[in-house]
Structures are given as structure tokens and as C-alpha cells.
Amino acid sequence: MLRWAAIAAVALLLALLPLYGDAVTIQYGINALLVAVLAQAWNILGGFTGYASFGNSTFYGLGTYGTAIAMAQFGLPFWTGLLLGAALAMLCALLVGIPILRLRGPYFAIATLGLSAALSALVANLDIAGRNIGLILPLTRNDTLFYEASLALLAAATLAVAWLSASRFGMGLIAIREDEDAAAVMGVNTTLYKVVALVLSALFTAVAGGIHAYWITFIDPASAFDSTLNVRMVIMTVFGGPGTVLGPVVGAFILSAIYEALASSISTAAALFFGIVIVLAVIFMPRGLVDLGWGFRRMGPRYLLETVRQYRL
């Protein structure tokens, strides 16, 4: 009970940020919240089933372009753009997921690796998408809208994951991660479960892309289908705790803060230090921050040594 009250208080504090935060804080908030959505969305498939997707930057790009095409080429309202982007991304997830997710193991990761490069090349040759020149979206002065939209999206994604982790469907996903054969024997339609998880993941990722497109006002294939974004999703989820409800969100917030602090204080070496933080995290808490929290409560600092021993690092 106390726990839920605290979560509600934090959510309220974040929701009211535009009332007491300044413009820079809101800008920072938009970025951090959108990245947290991406991590949370990646968590749905990557964290629960253990299937690492490198296709999420593709869904992000499709969401970006869906919104941009609707608004810049057809003058449609923002929400129509978001719908179009989400529809495109979910369709793509379905088309990619059905054949590839029938396979087990690393094939899925390999097959999704090239996806964003392929779609970026495709978009760069489509007139309706502005070819490689990019598209310009109309300017709006309402940064509060972007902030609240990002926050609402993160809330929706997190609630979806919370529901997932308690539902039969979520149990099925976890079963796939732990032992796919056993899951199949117990009557879990593994392909269906995995595809649904991927489509759900694509939905949230695409909407985040759409919000970002309208906020930044200019997009081109290189920025929309940026594969380093996918790497960040993975890092943030793994840092926070894959397969948990709040892990990816906490991971995204903390890593965004570290990145920001490093960028403003020691900018040249920022990338290097960021790398060191990640390496330390992987060595001492390979199961994420959330697990670290539980472990510390159970056995104190000995947890760090335990994990190092357990994973033979």
C-alpha cells in the first residue's frame, strides 16, 4: 500500500514538473522520459523472453516517419500521425516477427540487426518520405505538451509491463526465457507469444518516435533509424534490471543523468567515463539495479562478490 502511494507521489511530482521546473528541465525531461519509454518497450520482449531485438530502432524510425509524413506531407493532426506511425511499426513487427520468431535462439537478433539500415535506405529513396533530404514538421511552442505526452506514454508502457508481469501471458513469456521447450510442452504457443510481445514493444517505441519527431521539427533517415539508439535501449534495460517493471525506467533515468552530468562537466572524456560506468555495472550487477537492491537488503556488500563469483567474471 505504502509502496503504491509512493509511486503515485513520484508520478504526481513528475506530472506537475512543468509548474515548477524551468524550460531546460522540461527539455531534459522530454529526452529522459522518451529514452525510458524505449527501454521499457525493449524490456517487453528482451527482458521477459530473453530475445534481444535490434529491430527496435526500426520501429522508432517508422513511428518517426509515420508522424512526419502525416503532418508534413498531408497536414494531418499530430495524433493521426502517431496512429499512422504506430500502425506502420506494428505491421513491420508482425511481418518480421512471424517468420523469424518461429526460430529459436540468436537468429532473431541477427535477423533484426540489418533491419534499420535496410529501412533507412528504403526511406531515403521514397519521395513521400522526402528522400534523404528529410522532412520538416510544423513548429509548435508547446513544450509542456511534449513533456506530458512523453510522461503519459511512459506511464502507459510501465502499466502495460506491470500488467504483463502479473498476467498469464507474462508468465508464458518468462517461461519461454527460462526454457522454451518446457514452455511449449506446457501448452504455451511460443511463436504467438513472442510475436505479440514484439508488436506491443513496437507500439510504444513508435509512439515515442512520433513524439520526438514533432518536438525536434526536423527528421532525416540517419537520425530516425539511428542504430546506436537501439544499443542505448539494451544498455539501459540491462543496467536497470531486465524483466522487471521499474528496472528499465530507473536504469534509463540514472544513465541519462550520468550522461548529462558527464557531458556538462568533463565533456571530452564523457564517452569514456560512460563506458566505464557500463563495464562496472556489468561486472558487479549483471542482473540490474533492481536485483542489486534486493541483494543488498539480503546480504549487504557481500552481494557484489557473490555475483562476481556466481557469474565467474
Binding site: 509502496r3 509512493a6 509511486i7 513520484v10 511530482l13 513528475l14 514538473l17 521546473g21 531546460v24 528541465t25 531534459y28 525531461g29 529522459a32 521499474l246 530507473v250 533515468f253 540514472i254 541519462s256 543523468a257 548529462e260 552530468a261 556538462s264
Partner: peptide, 15 residues
């Protein structure tokens, strides 16, 4: 949660 709130405050107060 306190830690989380602290981290959020930290990241918002920077720069």
C-alpha cells in the same frame, strides 16, 4: 523510491 526520487532530483537540478 527515495533513491529514485533522489536520482530524479539530481538529474533535473544539474547543468
Amino acid at each position: 523510491l527515495l533513491a529514485m526520487a533522489g536520482a530524479t532530483a539530481l538529474l533535473l537540478g544539474l547543468s
